[in-house]
Design a protein around this nucleic acid. Structure first.
Length: 299
DNA sequence: AATAGCCCCAACCGCCTACAA
DNA sequence: GTTGTAGGCGGTTGGGGCTAT
């Protein structure tokens, strides 16, 4: 954010003694860092008064936790982190701070922004509610497997996927993510069966490198009650061979359904039943969708 | 090259809860 | 019970950067 830090005082001016707002300057950052180095975190209102910063304690706290704290990680979320967010959100909901505890170096604000700008955007395009079963199933059935695939480094081309029986069996990457197995039949229907078993170690992301908080990823599996059994069958309508542009950045759209899913068809989105993701007769999918699923990167 | 529109994200606000004094 | 503080969350804003035209 350093590129964005410029002096911007409150509308009432710089020297009138009122609290400052807007982007933090390097000088303010330095002041805050020095103060915390001497006195430690906490007592934010006191800190705000004594440090010489004309900021609210809340603003100081946010600036420290979201940006200045040494273990804050910058940059794009990795596929592993994205997958973890999707999975944790499916269990925890909008408990951003709780989710952030399992992503060392990531802040609740960052995760919330990710969710709102990336995930909710997909829901808007689909015209469905992110809390709906339909959307949750889409996450589980398509988005997460795609991330899984990315993590495994076994991204198939659309032609390879669509023109032959293809079984994808992802070996677990040493310590990380759920086992995923997809069996894909050729058109007219593509069948995906996945079995995701959350291993006891799946959340141990970069523990050695990142773990600066005792609660980060060091304890037992956070949802010990049951392994996640998400066996399901997904059936797609026919998808003809397609020419799909490469789309390899994390930040690209995953499901370009904006123009392919009408409001009328939205209610028929897969997973109307909570127990499966079955869709056979509706036409909510089209070539663009499958193209995006199988041939482009997820985010 | 210029412009408009969109996207992303840091930062903010308001409200809430928890907790200690 | 009241008050003050810290922290969490949802929603929003504003500006820089990117992209399409």
């Amino acid at each position: 954010m350093s590129t964005k830090t410029k002096t911007l005082s409150s509308s009432s001016g710089e020297d009138d003694g009122e609290l400052r707002r807007g982007p933090w300057t390097l000088e303010e950052d330095s002041l805050l860092i020095q103060y915390i180095a001497r006195h430690g975190e906490g007592r934010w209102n006191l800190l705000a008064k004594r440090s010489g910063l004309r900021r609210t304690g809340k603003s100081c706290r946010l600036r420290w936790l979201n940006y200045l704290k040494p273990d804050v990680k910058r940059g794009n979320l990795s596929p592993e982190e994205q997958l973890l967010i999707l999975d944790l959100h499916s269990k925890m909901g909008n408990r951003w701070s709780k989710i952030a505890q399992y992503l060392p170096g990531r802040t609740d604000n960052e995760i919330k922004n990710y969710w709102r700008t990336r995930v909710q955007k997909q829901a808007r395009h689909l015209r469905i509610d992110t809390s709906s079963v339909e959307f949750q199933n889409m996450i589980r059935c398509y988005w997460m497997p795609r991330l899984q695939q990315k993590i495994g480094g076994e991204i198939s081309t659309s032609s390879a996927v669509l023109n032959q029986n293809h079984t994808i069996s992802q070996p677990l990457e040493q310590n990380t993510f759920p086992h995923f197995t997809a069996t894909i039949s050729p058109p007219p229907q593509i069948q995906v069966q996945e079995e995701i078993n959350m291993s006891a170690t799946m959340y141990n992301l970069d523990v050695e490198k990142q773990n600066t908080k005792a609660e980060y990823c060091t304890g037992p599996y956070i949802f010990p009650s049951e392994p996640m059994d998400m066996s399901k069958t997904v059936q797609f309508p026919e998808c003809p061979p397609l020419h799909c542009g490469d789309n390899n950045g994390y930040d690209t759209e995953s499901f370009n359904l904006q123009e392919t899913v009408s409001a009328d068809s939205a209610p028929n989105f897969p997973g109307n039943s909570a127990s499966d993701c079955y869709v056979a007769e509706t036409n909510w999918l089209d070539s663009d969708f499958l193209c995006s699923i199988w041939n482009t990167d997820v985010m």
